[in-house]
């Protein structure tokens, strides 16, 4: 029982703190590429505390509030179902498929909240975000399917154990490099970084979903960003990089996954929506399908 309590409290907390680090890394890397200093170390925390400490909090109705709860709740749930070193409590109760669908709950919540703000920019942003989801999820799903076929299970704990049993040579990235590469491209789209940043697009739709978010609503979005980067990093690490043996290695892998994305993002512009779909359905999907074929052939 106590282990469950520890899971429920510490896993989201660790995810949040790690996510803060990931956000800071993203901002710092970007600053370095843009040849400037970048934000101070505590900047992500300052931003979130500042937003929560706003003295007026504008709401656009109950659904707007509920969406924030769904957003945080969905991601907290996702964190609890992730296998991380030392805490696997609930990863066995729901598998990889469950996890992928749980991650859609906060997205749906956000979409509903943005819709209830009644701002056309927000609605267009959600329309683009969902379109982007359709674009990047197909290669991602192929990668996940291929990995599950290769491991013969969707149980996250077992996936990690299978990879750790054989050392780095048995990591997904080594045994199925094509799937891992296709998945990495899809993960880049999932993080919403350029060139796939079509749903924030400040110059086009004025930051889309965030357009009416203020105060703690915006703060929740900042927290969501932390969770999102962490969750994506962990899922990719679990599937293809052998999961976590211990915390230092594990975090290094998660940071590496996110780093690849944030390092290449700054030299690209933003695709148009249809270009992104075409690209995603051409390259990562093709690569992942080739990887899937290899897995099936074995």
């Amino acid at each position: 029982m106590m282990s469950y309590v520890a899971d429920f409290i510490f896993m989201p907390l660790i995810a949040f703190v790690t996510g803060l680090g990931l956000v800071l890394m993203a901002r710092r890397v970007r600053a370095k590429i843009e040849r400037r200093v970048g934000p101070p170390v505590l900047q992500p925390i300052y931003d979130i505390v500042k937003l929560y400490a706003k003295k007026t909090q504008i709401s656009h109705g109950i659904m707007h509030d509920l969406s924030i709860m769904m957003l945080l709740g969905g991601f907290i749930t996702a964190e609890i179902f992730l296998p991380v070193p030392g805490f696997d409590g609930l990863a066995g109760e729901g598998d990889l498929i469950t996890l992928i669908y749980i991650m859609m709950v906060p997205m749906l919540g956000l979409a509903l909240g943005v819709g209830s703000c009644a701002n056309p920019n927000g609605s267009i942003g959600i329309s683009r975000a969902l379109t982007a989801m359709l674009a990047y999820d197909i290669p991602f799903i192929i990668a996940v399917t291929g990995a599950c076929m290769a491991y013969g299970t969707t149980n996250l704990i077992e996936i990690v154990q299978i990879q750790q049993a054989g050392g780095p040579a048995s990591w997904g990235a080594a045994t199925m490099p094509l799937l891992a590469f296709g998945g990495l491209l899809a993960v880049h789209g999932m993080m919403g970084k350029e060139p796939f940043e079509i749903y924030i697009a400040p110059a086009e739709i004025a930051t889309g979903p965030m357009v009416e978010m203020s105060g703690k609503y915006m703060g929740a979005l900042f927290i969501m960003q932390c969770f999102q980067l962490y969750t994506i990093g962990v899922i990719y690490t679990t599937l293809f990089l052998g999961g976590g043996e211990n915390w230092p290695f594990f975090l290094a892998k998660v940071f590496a996954v996110v780093f690849i994305s944030v390092a290449v993002t700054n030299v690209y512009g933003r695709f148009k929506t249809d270009t992104m779909i075409r690209w995603m359905w051409k390259w990562p999907t093709g690569i992942a399908l080739a990887g899937l074929a290899l897995v099936m052939a074995n």
Binding site: P12, Y52, A53, K54, K55, T56, Q57, I58, S59, D65, I68, M69, M70, L71, L72, G73, G74, I76, T77, I80, G215, K216, G219, A220
Partner: peptide, 17 residues
């Protein structure tokens, strides 16, 4: 977790308007 989200929402920050 949604309950925890609700707690975060209602306990932190000022009242909504």
């Amino acid at each position: 977790a949604i309950g925890a989200g609700a707690l975060i929402f209602y306990l932190l920050g000022n009242r909504r308007y």
